[in-house]
Design a protein around this nucleic acid. Structure first.
Length: 468
RNA sequence: CGGGCUGUAGCGCAGCUUGGUAGCGCGCUGCGUUCGGGACGCAGAGGUCCCGGGUUCAAAUCCCGGCAGCCCGACCA
């Protein structure tokens, strides 16, 4: 076995992460600090995430729209907590068209304000509600410590924004997004088990009355927030005057929500499933699910490989034929680094036996399959890999999530993973003590793991850990 | 934004202490032999030594100021 092209993850996890992102040709740093150039393979992964989230978002009743990247600074000032929370991260345009601007323009860090302004215009009657919008966009949050995908000054995301006639309706919608869009996407496509819960007040979105979160565990034991949904109460409706005429003829103030998932998920994918040989992409997400490669640059083999490619494509497998001229071993490692779930190898010995060799990326296991059976077998294998990745990630997470009985125990246990303990033990001073150990409360749950209504419910537990 | 480390070919690095012709490995190009887990031979191409200023006959090397990257912290999707 050749030496790995990557820094071993156990030796230096951040370095390993960078190696994977670079060698899998996912992204490069941009010329301005914190900016990111997303390369075709990285973007293909994001496009797959977009496609899988987009239809679920539409299924949840939201429509796509687009709002401007430039927002009047005065909009931010209208919601006190919001402006306070985002001010440090804003990029502001003060000069344009060769002149100083009368009013500075903010480059959007998120779009609650501008969308709120237009919701106020569009919502007249209870019949206009709920109003559910989503946009796919770039946003800018000036980052002091950027990392490719995980924390860049400009990133891509979807942001959903909804307005409802009642608290109950807004709350129910937030839960729908939380479960039926984000959690379902994470579980079924990204093979990513997450802890679902709500943020403690200290970790809430600026301007929200409640923030729901999905927290995944990376292979270094740290937490990554993989999606959030905010109940904004009437804070933004009040600030932007999103009012409607009620069925009874009175006047109502909307309840709004906002929710987002970003290109950070691409980084999460790397860190949740990757291994010492590079990226490992869950089949349902993979832009390339299977790659067919002939062991030699030989006309007969290439022809057989092309037939296999056609057969797989015919079964709906996203398949690519490797026509590279590099040595076989080199081509294998290159596809491994990119995390393609299944390799279909065909060599002279295979051909003689009328078979191909299938190799799964997650375990490295090989199996010989008759040529005619390859498409069917690959389809089944992809599903097996999908399940196995989820199970492996879930086991890993559960093994590193320990129940503890005090803040001190939590501080020790959460160095290598998560700790779970009573929220009452942490609420208040405990949070500050954990923070000294670089540990934060990732989410609050009920004892049975379900999502609570508010941090004030009795008997809640919290999951704490280090985070990205 | 604070502390630490670093910037030399696409990538990884040596050279800097003690100023004097810019190097190595991988990658890249061409030809040939190869190909069942990062192949090999021969011949080549490729450099504003991060940027700006200063010292000097002379700066990759010394001094000052920026910019960028990485790690740790505070902040965050």
């Amino acid at each position: 076995m050749a030496p790995s092209a990557l820094t071993p993850p156990d030796e230096d996890f951040p370095r390993w992460y960078q190696d994977v992102v670079a060698k899998a040709e996912m992204a490069d740093n941009g010329p301005v600090r914190g900016t990111m150039v997303i390369r075709p393979y990285g973007y293909a992964l994001w496009e797959r995430m977009q496609a899988e989230m987009d239809w679920r978002i539409k299924r949840a009743g939201a429509q796509n729209a687009y709002f401007p990247i430039f927002i009047p600074e005065s909009y931010f000032a209208r919601e006190a907590e919001h402006v306070e929370g985002f001010s440090p991260e804003l990029a502001v345009v003060t000069h344009a068209g060769g002149e100083d601007l009368a009013e500075p323009i903010v480059v959007r860090p998120t779009s609650e304000t501008v969308i709120g302004e237009f919701m106020a215009k569009w919502v007249q009657s209870y019949r206009d509600l709920p109003l559910a919008l989503n946009q796919w966009a770039n946003v800018v949050r000036w980052e002091l410590r950027p990392r490719l995908f995980l924390r860049s000054s400009e990133f891509l995301w979807q942001e959903g924004h909804t307005a409802h006639a009642s608290y109950d309706d807004a709350h129910a919608y937030a839960l729908t997004i939380h479960h039926d869009v984000y959690d379902e996407f994470l579980r079924e496509v990204l093979a990513a088990p997450a802890f679902l819960g709500i943020k403690p007040p200290s970790e809430r979105f600026a301007g929200a009355v409640n923030s729901l979160t999905l927290e995944g565990m990376m292979r270094d034991g740290k937490a990554l927030q993989m999606g959030t949904t905010h109940e904004l109460g009437q804070n933004f409706s009040r600030a932007f005057n999103i009012v409607f005429q009620t069925e009874a003829g009175g006047s109502g103030l909307c309840y709004t929500t906002s929710w987002g998932a970003s290109t950070r998920l691409v980084g999460g994918l790397v860190m949740m499933h990757g291994d010492e040989n590079g990226l490992v992409v869950p089949p349902r997400l993979a832009p390339i699910q299977a790659v067919v490669l002939s062991v030699r640059d030989d006309a007969t083999l290439l022809e057989a490989a092309a037939r296999l490619r056609d057969g797989l494509a015919g079964e709906g497998v996203r398949v690519e034929l490797d026509r590279g001229r590099a040595s076989f071993g080199r081509r294998v490692t290159d596809w491994e680094i990119k995390g393609v779930p299944v390799r279909v190898e065909v060599g002279p010995r295979d051909l003689e036996a009328g078979q191909a060799t299938l190799v799964r990326r997650d375990t490295g296991e090989k199996e010989a399959v008759a040529l005619g059976a390859v498409p069917t077998r690959v389809g089944a294998l992809l599903e097996e890999v999908q399940r196995a990745l989820y199970e492996r990630a879930r086991r890993f997470r559960d093994e590193r999530t320990v129940e503890v009985g005090s803040v001190d125990e939590a501080a020790a246990a959460a160095q290598e993973g998560f700790a779970r303990l009573g929220w009452a033990l942490v609420d208040g001073e405990g949070e500050a003590r954990l923070r000294e150990a670089a540990i934060t409360v990732r989410c609050l749950q009920r004892a049975d793991g379900s999502v609570p209504e508010s941090p004030d419910e009795e008997g809640l537990v919290c999951i704490v850990g280090k985070s990205y």
